[in-house]
Simulated scan of single mutants.
Amino acid sequence: MTTRYAALLRGVNVGGHKKVPMAALREVLGELGFGEVSTHLQSGNAAFSHEPADEAALAAELEAAIERRFGFRVDCLVRDGRYLRAVVDDCPFPAAGLEPRQLHVTYFSEPVAPERFAALAPADFAPEEFRLGARALYLYAPDGLGRSKLGAALARPALNKGLVATTRNWNTVVRLAELTAPGRPG
């Protein structure tokens, strides 16, 4: 039996840097033996099937293949469909009542303790808010991520030291959960 996974590539196809065409990413995933490959948008999201495996090992394999193919390193996270569905289901904000541009999820390579963000005073960023989840951070930014002071503060390298972190808007979060739903073909 295979498992559905999503690969989340960090920082590709942004501002003309680290260009990874999605057709080429599908080829790379296929060459690695991943099945039922599809991509979503141009921002480094792919879904695929694979025998149950360690997510970090799959991510490392994909990172190495991308570096061989394109000549630069790209951090990748791999998450299975059950986890991605749980991220949607566990959202602490009223997602159905918000515009997708107002809600984002940052996926982390490992669990993050609340103490990491203790220096951020919520009152300094209101009405923006964040909440931690399982290897994820939910960000409510009423004016969108591009204008978010809290989003900028959360992206500081010091707060993310030792982590791979990549952010997706709510539409993409939901779509990745759909693309990787257990039992769903590619």
Rank of each mutant, 00 (worst) to 15 (best):
A153L: 08
E99C: 03
V105T: 12
L132W: 10
A153E: 14
L137D: 02
P111E: 10
G97T: 05
G151Q: 12
P111D: 13
P111V: 08
D124L: 00
G133R: 08
G146T: 11
F130S: 09
P114R: 14
L132Q: 13
K149C: 01
S148A: 08
A153M: 06
A123S: 11
Y140C: 04
A95M: 06
G146I: 12
P157Q: 13
A96C: 03
K149P: 00
A152L: 09
G133D: 14
A121M: 02
G162N: 13
P114G: 11
H104C: 02
R101P: 02
G97W: 04
F117V: 03
A155P: 06
L103M: 12
L145V: 03
A126T: 01
P100G: 07
L120I: 00
V105S: 12
E110T: 04
A155M: 12
E110I: 01
F117A: 06
K149E: 15
G151M: 13
G146H: 08
F108P: 00
E128N: 13
N160E: 10
G144A: 05
G151C: 10
H104W: 14
G133E: 11
P94Q: 07
A113N: 15
V112L: 02
Y138W: 03
R156H: 12
P111Q: 11
P94K: 07
R131P: 04
A119N: 10
A119T: 09
L139V: 03
A158L: 08
A141G: 03
F125L: 06
P127G: 10
L137M: 07
Q102N: 03
P142I: 08
P157R: 14
F108H: 15
F93R: 04
E99D: 10
A153V: 04
G146A: 14
P122Y: 01
D143S: 05
P157I: 03
K149G: 15
E110L: 04
A158Y: 02
E99P: 02
P157E: 13
G97Y: 03
L154M: 04
V105Y: 10
L139W: 05
D124A: 03
R156L: 14
G133P: 09
Q102W: 01
A136E: 15
A152D: 14
G162F: 08
E128M: 11
G146L: 12
Q102D: 03
S148C: 09
Y138K: 05
P94C: 06
E128R: 11
E115S: 15
P127D: 08
A153C: 05
P122C: 00
K149Y: 04
R101A: 13
E110W: 03
K149M: 09
R101Q: 12
R147Q: 09
G162L: 07
R101T: 04
A95E: 14
P142A: 13
K161T: 15
G151H: 07
P122R: 10
L145R: 15
